[in-house]
């Protein structure tokens, strides 16, 4: 039988253990924030150079063997509306009319986050962040749940709605299989006539971007979009206007999306391991005396 003193001692021991696990857990999580692989590649997109020729879209379609487009890639009428990436187009260029500035074009594709929210959200582990920097996915294990579409802060993953039997997620993979793996730049980067995109080591590109801003502060807004956003992305942008005006959320958190749920998820194992023991103890203690009393009552009843 547990007396009151033993129970309190037990509770104290449990509390100390729980607190220490909590502290250790918290430290481990803080140390685990990931700033990207050291030799990861990236692309610096200088939007001041883009002329909206859509060559990148054509090259992407060709490289990834995507279905035929609805309109030719030299058709400028697509700029009438803002487009997003689809299962048929892993990259799209949009046109933005910005007051008292020239027309700006903005290419969009997967930004290949350092700590991708799509990867975090995927319960079948279809996503991988490769050491080269690409966020790729295994379509063989994808079950088409579309969690990653909700998780992505940039609205990138698209869905093959047109496939009736096996709809899957589709998105830019940094030309990983055909190019990046072998040290070559993606197809869009290679075809771009204006060298809007500079391919290189991510750390060098950040330096290069800051240098461009420093050398021509009147040309650029003083920020590399993607250097810090959601924990940093492999694809980063320079612009002559505020990023909000060209369809990029300028108020995105600097912490990776996973940090929004990391603390909560870190508590789950603690709750699962301690609570059952704690409540079983309380239950036993609470029912022990009751059981004895009950039995006693029963016996008395039987005797009567």
């Amino acid at each position: 039988m547990i007396d009151r003193r033993d129970f309190l001692k037990g509770c104290l021991a449990c509390g100390v253990t729980a607190a220490s696990i909590g502290v250790v857990g918290k430290n481990a999580l803080a140390a685990g924030s990931f700033e990207g692989y050291p030799d990861a590649m990236g692309v610096l997109v200088d939007l001041t150079r883009c002329v909206g020729c859509r060559s990148c879209e054509a090259a992407c379609n060709n490289e990834q063997k995507l279905p035929d487009p609805d309109l030719p890639f030299d058709d400028q009428s697509v700029f009438k509306e803002e487009r997003r990436t689809t299962a048929k187009a892993y990259t799209v260029v949009n046109k933005y009319e910005v007051a008292d500035k020239d027309t700006l074009f903005r290419k969009m594709q997967c930004n290949h986050c350092n700590e991708p929210a799509c990867l975090t959200s995927c319960f079948v582990n279809a996503y991988t962040k490769t050491k080269e920097g690409a966020v790729i996915y295994n379509s063989k294990v994808c079950v088409g749940c579309r969690n990653c579409m909700i998780a992505c802060p940039f609205n990138i993953p698209a869905y093959s709605y047109s496939s009736p039997t096996n709809p899957l997620i589709k998105k830019c993979i940094f030309c990983y299989e055909t190019r990046l793996k072998n040290g070559r730049p993606p197809a869009c980067v290679e075809i771009c006539p204006q060298q809007v995109m500079t391919f290189g080591h991510r750390s060098d590109l950040i330096e290069m971007g800051h240098e461009r801003i420093k050398n021509d502060p009147s040309k650029y807004v003083s920020k590399i979009y993607g250097e810090k956003e959601v924990g940093g992305t492999s694809w980063m942008y320079l612009s002559s206007v505020d990023f909000d005006k060209i369809g990029l959320d300028n108020h995105m958190q600097n912490e990776p999306i996973i940090s929004n749920v990391k603390d909560f998820l870190g508590m789950v194992p603690m709750v699962l391991s301690i609570w059952p023991a704690l409540f079983t103890g309380i239950h036993l203690l609470a029912t022990k005396n009751k059981g004895e009393h009950g039995d006693h009552d029963h016996k008395e009843g039987d005797q009567q």
Binding site: A58, A59, N61, D68, P72, F73, D74
Partner: peptide
């Protein structure tokens, strides 16, 4: 061909 233009237009 890669631009899907002219005679290769969709």
């Amino acid at each position: 061909v890669i631009f899907h233009s002219n005679i290769y237009a969709p």
